[in-house]
Structure formats: structure tokens, C-alpha cells
Amino acid sequence: MEDTQIIELYFARDERALTETDRKYGGLCCSTGRQILGSREDAEECWNDVMLKTWNKIPPERPLYFAAYLVTLMRNAALTLYEKLHAEKRGGAQTALVLEELENCLTAPDDVEAQVSEAETGEMIRRFVKTLSEDARNIFILRYVYMMPVKDIAERLSIGESKVKVSLHRSRAALRDYLGGERP
């Protein structure tokens, strides 16, 4: 079923919307959740929350990019849960790795001047991603939004893991420079 048809089901308050959403994007979102949380059960719990949230947000919202919409909700929910769980234990198959990678993008993590809001950072990230080439952008997003392991990205894009690593490496370097320059 096309995304637009699924969204129409939401607008019609037809519960098949949830079934179709789960059928089409459950795997993707749960995979993203698993990469963040390192737990299938936790990911499925997040996904259920996300579907409920989606049901409540549509309408009035009408996402143009439904997959992105769902994945964004999913990763936000998973990251929130990750932080909660992380206070108690280490977890998250990819999260720890991703956080370690992103640490290198922080020009001055402890700098008071670097304390910008998440919203401001989000806007910078949004602009930064636009500066990347299409391939680099896709790889960057698959890694840091979809939280895919490098190996999975390589397989998905039919390229070598090395290329993925190199691309990510360069993108992070560029991000670090970008954040340094953009920092208020």
C-alpha cells in the first residue's frame, strides 16, 4: 500500500492504518530501535509507542515522507529509552559506537560557549547534511538516523564497508568543521 493510502486510513480513523504501517515500516523502525537499544523487546516496545503516537498525531499532521516521519519518531523514542536504560546499565548495540564517533565531531565538548540547544543543533545538522554529496548524505543518514551498522549500510548500498567508513569519516570531519564555524 502506498504511503498516501496509509495516511488516508489514519485520517479516516481506520485502524487498518496501524496494521499497514506495521506491515510496511515495522521492520525498518524496529531495526533502528534495535540498533539503538540493543534489544528486540525494547525496540518493539518503542515501536508500539510510536504507532500510538502516530495514530494520535495523524491527523492533523500529514507527513510528506512517511518513512522518515516514522523513523524519526522511532529513534527519538528509542534514544529516550536508551538514556533511561543507560542510567542503569550499558546497552545499545550501535548507540555507544555512534556516540563515540560523534564525540569526535564536537569541537569543544566542555566549552560553555558550545552549549547550544538541541533545536539549534538540529538546525545546524539539517543545513550541514544539505552540504554533503548525495552518496555521502545517504550514508551519513543511514548511520546516524537509521543507526545502521557499517556492514549493513555497505550491503544496502552495494558498496564496500571501507567506502562507508571513509565516507562517514569525512562527513564527521566536515561536520566538526561545520559545527565549529556555525557555533554561536
Binding site: A67, A68, L79, E83, T95, L102, E103, L106, E118, I141
Partner: peptide, 20 residues
């Protein structure tokens, strides 16, 4: 880094969709 990771959600949905 967590702020940065969370901020990734602000990436243009069009770009996120395209990557997918």
C-alpha cells in the same frame, strides 16, 4: 554526542526518506 545524535532527527525528512 547524545545531543548531536538526537539532533539528527532534525534532518530534512526528504533527505531521510531519500536515504531509506
Amino acid at each position: 554526542a547524545m545531543t548531536l545524535l538526537r539532533a539528527m532527527s532534525a534532518i530534512d525528512p526528504k533527505d531521510i526518506e531519500a536515504a531509506y
